[in-house]
């Protein structure tokens, strides 16, 4: 593909937002969006891990292709992502206890975030170059953070509302997600370079 970096960035962050348009990373999106002060660190941690995973996947894809063993791609991706998260966790624990305390509890959650594996799979399918892949990962992570933070803001506000009983819980979150997704449709076409 010949998409420019800015196109990829805008598209993944807004018009093809990971959560709201591609349905990647929904579980943490619904699970951790209850409060603003946890949403932001979660978004930051996810962005970081997505970038690391994208980097690993890029190297791995090169290796797997060079060895002509594409059938091992998926299994090696998931293994390296899981180990990368572990390494990041250990590394943070050693070098920056403050950051670790802020992000630590989220890191295990991120391993099963499909956005992380999704980035790896999509960048492979779209045959992105190294820079494109990194931009894709960064934009995707920021888009995830944006959606998470917006959702958290709305949910905090609704804590004061008299929401009807039957709408409580996941149904309410999904309605909000649907509304956000509807609003994000306005960005369609942005970043298509039309």
């Amino acid at each position: 593909m010949h998409d420019s970096l800015s196109q990829i960035f805008i598209a993944t962050m807004l018009s093809n937002n990971f959560v709201l348009a591609m349905f990647l990373g929904l579980c943490p999106f619904l699970g951790v969006s209850g409060k603003l002060n946890t949403a932001l660190p979660m978004g930051a941690a996810t962005t970081f891990v997505i970038m690391v995973a994208s980097l690993c996947a890029f190297g791995l894809n090169w290796l797997v292709t060079a060895l002509d063993m594409q059938y091992l791609r998926l299994i090696s991706y998931i293994v390296i992502i899981a180990s990368a998260v572990q390494l990041v966790e250990m590394f943070l624990k050693k070098t920056s206890p403050v950051l670790f305390r802020a992000l630590g509890i989220y890191l295990p959650l991120i391993t099963t975030n499909c956005a992380v594996l999704g980035v790896a799979l999509f960048q492979t399918a779209r045959e992105y170059s190294f820079l494109q892949a990194m931009t894709f990962a960064f934009g995707g992570g920021l888009g995830f953070t944006l959606a998470l933070v917006m959702m958290a803001g709305l949910r905090e506000r609704l804590r004061l509302a008299i929401v009807p009983n039957v709408v409580q819980g996941t149904a309410l979150s999904l309605m909000l997600a649907g509304l956000l997704s509807l609003a994000f449709m306005g960005f369609a076409g942005l970043g298509s370079g039309g």
Binding site: M150, G153, L154, L179, L180, L182, A183, F184, M185, G186, F187, A188, G189, L190, S192, G194
Partner: peptide, 18 residues
Amino acid sequence: FGGLTEGVMYAILIANAL
């Protein structure tokens, strides 16, 4: 820059959410 010709509605919705 978008695919749509009009953006007021979406801009307000996004700002509402923010």
